[in-house]
């Protein structure tokens, strides 16, 4: 090898690549190898690297499916066991707020998808705008959720020592058109609300983590990190955000809607 410099200290070269900002093409002394800083040397092609990234992200999302799946299963089982309690407690949820939140979350996901597109076509300002809109709608979702939780707090529908079954054992006193439940079945409404808070709370935690990541991504996008062909962080965050979206697409009908019809 004529060029001994390249072999003396490979770590120097890696360091050099890491520090290069903004991302640009590099041609080595022989003028043969174009390396982008985001293109790791152990991948044959950039496409292979991109696919490996998507694959890894999907493996993570599969563990998330199993995580939420456990709670979905608990819901399914308890709904079958304590159906009357689940019907009346589900009817206490606010369908209007739930439906509005579904639309808000779909809108947020729509802007996220447009953000991925903006990164692909290297429109920096559009990408920043889309990420901000994604964040705004994400925060709006959490805002609506706050008012829903507040309502549950006021009605003593948060499981624990202050939980009250009064609305379910004596619905007439609360102007509810429900059949009164026997006290032991009315106690089971706590299980519904426990699952409601566990599932929507875990979903909201994922939203909060996502919004924190969105701040970080927006800042990096603003500095131009994702407008020169390097879109992997935006794309993989998009996968996460859409996954959180999908969880809500199932939570909404299961918690708010499917028990509704017995009431007239």
């Amino acid at each position: 090898m004529a060029n001994t410099v390249a072999h003396t200290n490979p770590l120097d070269k890696v360091d050099h690549l890491e520090k290069l900002m903004p991302h640009e093409s590099i041609i080595n002394e022989e003028g043969e190898h174009v390396v982008l800083p985001q293109h790791r040397h152990h991948f044959e092609t950039e496409e292979q690297q991109r696919e490996a990234g998507s694959f890894g992200m999907w493996l993570f999302l599969l563990t998330e499916i199993m995580f939420f799946g456990g709670m979905f299963f608990a819901y399914l089982l308890y709904r079958n066991w304590y159906y009357p309690a689940f019907v009346v407690s589900s009817n206490q949820l606010n369908v209007g707020m739930g439906a509005a939140n579904t639309a808000i979350l779909i809108t947020s996901g729509f802007f996220m998808a447009l953000g991925v597109w903006a990164a692909e076509v290297r429109k920096k300002n559009l990408l920043v705008l889309m990420l901000i809109l994604t964040t705004v709608f994400g925060c709006a979702f959490l805002g609506v959720k706050y008012f829903e939780y507040k309502e549950k707090y006021e009605l003593h529908h948060i499981p624990g020592s202050s939980f009250s079954t009064a609305m379910f054992t004596n619905p007439g006193a609360y102007h509810l058109k429900e059949e009164p439940l026997a006290p032991d079945m009315a106690e089971k409404t706590q299980i519904f609300f426990f699952l409601y808070f566990a599932m929507t709370g875990m979903h909201a935690l994922h939203m909060i983590i996502g919004i924190v990541l969105l701040f970080w991504l927006t800042w990096r996008a603003h500095k131009g990190a994702f407008s020169s062909g390097y879109v992997a962080p935006i794309e993989n965050f998009g996968l996460y955000w859409h996954f959180v979206d999908i969880v809500w697409l199932f939570l909404f009908p299961l918690l708010y809607l499917i028990n509704r019809h017995p009431v007239h």
Partner: peptide, 13 residues
């Protein structure tokens, strides 16, 4: 819900 989820997975994701 399943239809919506499939649409999201196929196109948004």
């Amino acid at each position: 819900a399943c239809t919506k989820a499939v649409i999201v997975i196929l196109f948004f994701m």
